[in-house]
Every structure is written in C-alpha cells, then in structure tokens.
Design a protein around this nucleic acid. Sequence first.
DNA 1: CGTCTACTTGAGGACTGTCAACTTTCGTGG
DNA 2: CCACGAAAGTTGACAGTCCTCAAGTAGACG
Lengths: 222, 222
Amino acid sequence: MRHLCMPEGLCARDVTKLEHIISVTRKIRRGDALFRTGDTFDSLYAVRSGSLKTVVTNDGSRDGGRERMTGLLLAGDALGLDGIGDGRHTCDAVALEDSSVCVVPYALFERMCRETDSLQRRMHRMMSQAINREAEHVVRLGMLRADERVARLLLDMSARLARRGYATAEFTMRMTRDDIGSYLGMTLETVSRTLSRFDKLGLIEAQGKSIRIRDFDGLRGI
Amino acid sequence: MRHLCMPEGLCARDVTKLEHIISVTRKIRRGDALFRTGDTFDSLYAVRSGSLKTVVTNDGSRDGGRERMTGLLLAGDALGLDGIGDGRHTCDAVALEDSSVCVVPYALFERMCRETDSLQRRMHRMMSQAINREAEHVVRLGMLRADERVARLLLDMSARLARRGYATAEFTMRMTRDDIGSYLGMTLETVSRTLSRFDKLGLIEAQGKSIRIRDFDGLRGI
DNA sequence: CGTCTACTTGAGGACTGTCAACTTTCGTGG
DNA sequence: CCACGAAAGTTGACAGTCCTCAAGTAGACG
C-alpha cells in the first residue's frame, strides 16, 4: 500500500510520519461521490484502488447544466488539490468503479510539509505536475481532431496502466462513452464511431468497455 | 509595487522578508522570452507590468511544430510554476508587450515557505488556483462553440483588468488574432469573423487590437 | 514611404454534432 | 438463475459549424 500513495523520495522516517497522518482510508462505491462541488475542503486524497473521475456541472445558460468530465484518476493519483484554493471543492469526484482512497487531513499534512523538506518539495512538485497535466490536456482539446484525441487517450491510459504494472495493451475503460466524450470535448456518438473505425482499421479491438491495442505505432500516427 | 506581486494575507514582517528575496526585477521586450521550454527552472516570477503569454510548441507529427498558446499573464500574475515539477520549464513565456517581472529565486522561496506559515499557505493556494483556472479553460474549450469562447475571453479580460483597477469596457488586446485563436482552439480567421460579427451586432466595437464592450449582458448571453 | 506582418472577408468543403432507430449490456428483483 | 427494464452503445442520415485556401486591405516598423 505504501508505494501506492504519495511517498517517493521520502526517507523511511518521513514515510512513517506520513503514514501516521494518512491512517484513514475510505471506500466509495461505483457512482458515489467522494466529494461534491461546494463541499468544504479539509482533506486531500490518494487513490488506493479503483478509479474516479472529476466532473464539473457547467452552470452555462445554454447547456442547462451539462456535466463535463475534467479528470481521470487511477490508483496512486492524488485528488482534491482543487479545494486548497478557496477552501471549497470546485468539482465533483465520482467513483467509476468500487474504489478506496487514503484520506490525508490537510491541516496535518500542511504542518508536516513545513517540518519535512522532502515532503514539501514533493507537494510542490505534485501540484506543478497537476498544472502541467491540465495544460497538456488543453493542448489536446484545442488542436487535435476527434480521432487524434481518442487515439491519445488510449495511448495515455495504456502508459499510465503500464507505469502501475498492468498490461499495456489490454485494459478496461471504466468510463462510459458519454464520459469519454465529455472528457475529450466531443459527443458520445463520435467516440463510438471513432472506436469502431479504429477497430475496422485493425488498430484496436474494442467491444464495449474492454480495449485491446493491436497497433501502437498506428495509433500514434493517427 | 508591493501590492502587485505575490503578498496578500502576509503580515508586515513577512512582507519585508519576502521583499528581500525578490529584490531582483527583469525587463523583457515585446516578443522576447522570459524562459523557454527545457530551460532549467530556478525562479518563479510575478508580472510587474505588461503582459506575457505562455506557449507550447507541439511536437506532434501532423502539425510540424505549431505553436499553441496556453496562458495569458497580466500584472500581478505568478508565472513559472510549471517548472517545479521536473526542474525544467515545460513551456515558453513570451512578452506580448514590453514588460517587467519580479524574480523569485525558488530555492530561497521554498525555504521561506517552510519558515512562514502564511507564505506556505499562500503558495499552496496559488498553485491550487492555477489548477482550477486550467480546468476552467478546459471546460471552455471542450463544450463551448467558437463564438461563446470568444465572448467569454472578452468578459474574462474585462474582469481581470477591472480587478487591477482598469476600465472594464475598454482595453487593448495585446495578443494577435493568431494567438487568440490558438488560445481558444480555433483558427485566426474564425476569431476575426467572430469579432466582426459581435461588432455588427452592437455587442462590441473592435478595431484591430482595441476592444470596447458595449453590451455586457449581450455577450454573456451568447 | 516601402515592406512586412497582421487582419479581414469570401467560397467551398471536411469534420463533427444532432436526431433517431435499433442492439447490446447491465443491474435488479422475482 | 433467469427475466425484465433501464442504461449504454452502435449506426445511419443530415445539417451546421468551423477549417482551408485564397485574395485583398490595413497597420506597424524601420
């Protein structure tokens, strides 16, 4: 469990201290929310098992509150950084499958950051990397076509799972087509059509949520 | 100058300490870069005067290295957080006009964060807010049409300038149409056409880079 | 004052969204 | 364990938005 949560680059003693803080874990059942927009922020979380999505419910006039998925969190990912800014969460975090998270009370964590250099450094790096991931996502949305976006999502999922020790070519998409669409800025129909086309082209085998990548270079070349 | 840079929520003594660290300022001429992708990261910056954009040069196969604007920084905004993650900057920061920035050596700043509660808290909040801003931008790109994106950008500019004490209805866009397009994920032609249409509709007066908003509610309703 | 860059505007076409019908999968309760 | 209803996914036809290509105008800078 240790290696799943936040550590990395902490000495043994620091890890022990950290462990003391994050002694609480919490289970979330598929479809349930870990937190919702507007909830007061008091803890950070690290995904222990399962996966979650973050969504914002756009208060736009025209859409009448359509949901928009903004993030996909896998085991080991940190979650809840959005709440630090104003003390309230700015999005919902919903479990895509039955999942569990480590709970990290922020007040304690903040204090410990001050005492432990390496933890502070790690915290800053984590947040910086979160910023970069978002920026990367913006680039995807803004200058790629629908099929390029889907291809990159598949490759990205594969890489992230590989880093966690899972098979790279075969995995289950926990998101619905609707989620994928809202994550990539397109409609669920376009997602479905694109996956079907990739399948016909021999790039992947897709049936429902289970994906098998057959031609990595082909996908990269889309 | 004090109120332009990072403070806010710091007591007088802390501000003095901070001031000591950020004694250096740097001028950047229009078109020049404050830092570039891959540069080793050693300082954060705060915009003192002028404005800058951040751009990533996409290494995509198809585009052959087209630029993509990812951020617009005005006086008072912090800059450089992207570099903390891996010790190297992940984007270019280019001045949109002759500008100056406060230089904040990160090693010193990091140490001071550890000593000063309020500064650490402020740092975390800043990064969290940066994450939220990006997320907001993602939502814009993903679920709004071209004219909605342009309308929101104009309103956003107006609000940000207002917060800095400038007129809300009249301002100069330092970005080119190309910049705006790449920021909003569309072509410069679409930007131009959209502004022209807004002008004809009486929502704004646009000639070249100078913008005057005539009907705020109209823009919001787009 | 000339040249280069930025901007505007038009025509045509590609991509993706919308609407709709249908099939498959999933979850719940008998 | 099976059956049923609901949710998720697929596929087609058509329409609209936005991009591409192109030509010409206005503005900036030396």
